[in-house]
Nucleic acid binder design. Sequence first.
RNA 1: GAGGGCGUAGCUCAGUUGGCAGAGCAGCGGACUUUUAAUCCGCGGGUCCAGGGUUCGAGUCCCUGCGCCCUCACCA
Length: 530
Amino acid sequence: MHEQEAARLANLNKARAIGGVNPYGTRTEGLVTLAEAKGRYDEEADAEHQATAKSESPVDDRPRAKVAGRVMLKRTGGKLIWMNLRDASGEDLQIAVSKRDCTGDGFPLAQATDLGDIVVAHGPLMKTRTGEVTIWVDAFEPGAKSLTPPPTKHAGLQDVELRYRQRYVDLWANPETMRVFQLRSAIVSNIRRLMDARGYQEVETPMLQAQAGGAAARPFKTHLNALDVDVSLRIAPELYLKRLLVGGMPKVYEVNRNFRNEGVDKQHNPEFTMIEAYEAFGDMGTMMELTEHLCRESARLVVAWSRGVDILSVSDVDLVLPFGELMIDFGSPFARVGYGELFERSLGFAMSDLDKVWAKADELGIVGKYAGHLAAEGREIGAGGLRGKVDDAIIVNEVFEEVAEASLDPSRPTYITDYPSAISPLTRPKPEDLTLADRADLFLGGMELAPHYTELNDPEVQAEKFRAQLAGVDAEEMTFRTFDKDFIRALKVGMPPAGGMGLGIDRLVMLLTNQRSIRDVLLFPFMRPE
RNA sequence: GAGGGCGUAGCUCAGUUGGCAGAGCAGCGGACUUUUAAUCCGCGGGUCCAGGGUUCGAGUCCCUGCGCCCUCACCA
């Protein structure tokens, strides 16, 4: 169906034939946004102009504006053409191109304009009879031809797949999409400002790594031809940021992409953005306070933005934002609950009661899952079952995630503290109980948002934990668990005690902009190739 | 990976019991210098996701494939 495109090509040629104008525009100085143009309207000047227009000495002191925008609506009269323009400023603005008052070839060019074209218009600001602020155009020229028919003017672009694949249409056709991504940019920019204000130094560490460490996830693998070595895209920047602590940088952070070759769903995209931060001579608590600060101030920014008020005027009690059916309170202090305490409260028995833990794991199908893993590798399970072959801590954690995490109030930001040390390989064990780790994970909206650690800086303990990890049950997992020798070498040089955290930016933006899918906060989410 | 849903005009969507492929907007031609999703008159526009099957006849029923969405599982 190229009927509509043919009509646009015809209009394109029509415009080209008019005075040699380039339908694809040119450099243009002095443009203001549609919102600013609208704001320039002057009631008195407009009234004076109207009163004197038909007199012998007309007065026209109306403010003028030169704008560029995409044509959303077009209503043609015989000698007067109305268009509604849109830009990123969030305000659409009406323009009127009159055959009598528009100079040069403006009027015929306006006639040859199609919905979706980008146009440039210049003229005084006036109000119509019905009170709509309008630019009464005296100079009109094309900005860019749109050869593709636009989505319906009213419904916008609804098709979810098209919205992701053709974000360039979604952004201008659906103002809410533009708003989300403007907010995302503002949130990230604000987070950088908050970090800088606290004396953190932003750094960049490798995304191409010979060994993908700092988390447990399957990496994307590729090959560096020049050196003939296999490399991976990073799954976390952690081990490099800690090397910088060793080098003497006291407070570092990085906002950038991680890549994980795993499931794709509403909360997971193959590449996602995290802020990771480390502070020498801090600890888990230092970082929990930092995360709470970043979340709260980000919420303040969003509230200020949506109300159109100054950020300083938004108090903590106003920091309640909708997320689906939930109302999330970012203003109150975040809740805290111990891992073991939450386990016992939700399961009815202690995590140390291993008989009951294993029985529950069996009931939940967890045992069967692990038995399947072992069987797939051809390993004997034996008469004694799985116990003894799979670390108790892993089974405890499976039960915890299934039952205890799910019992949290999703509308209340909550830190889970005192994780088992066995599942926290990069975290310092608690001095008073070496089976627990100085680790706290922030949960919110049913999502894991950010882990916090008192970092492990004892190279011997770290080396032992790497070895223990590698003794895992699953051969498949072995392929992405790494023993980073250089990292141990760095720790041997001496890393100051430190706190660290990693906050998922995409998920934070989801929570703050009320978007239920990570794809709606990523400009170009990963899509299967067409 | 399992289950469910969807795929029809450029866009947004109807399509009844299996019986000539529909609407609104958009487009084309005409009228109109204060319109507001402008209005009025007229006209054109389809690989019904793809392939196969059942049937006199399939957008509709069946099978296979592709794509997207949802739920669950996986992803410590």
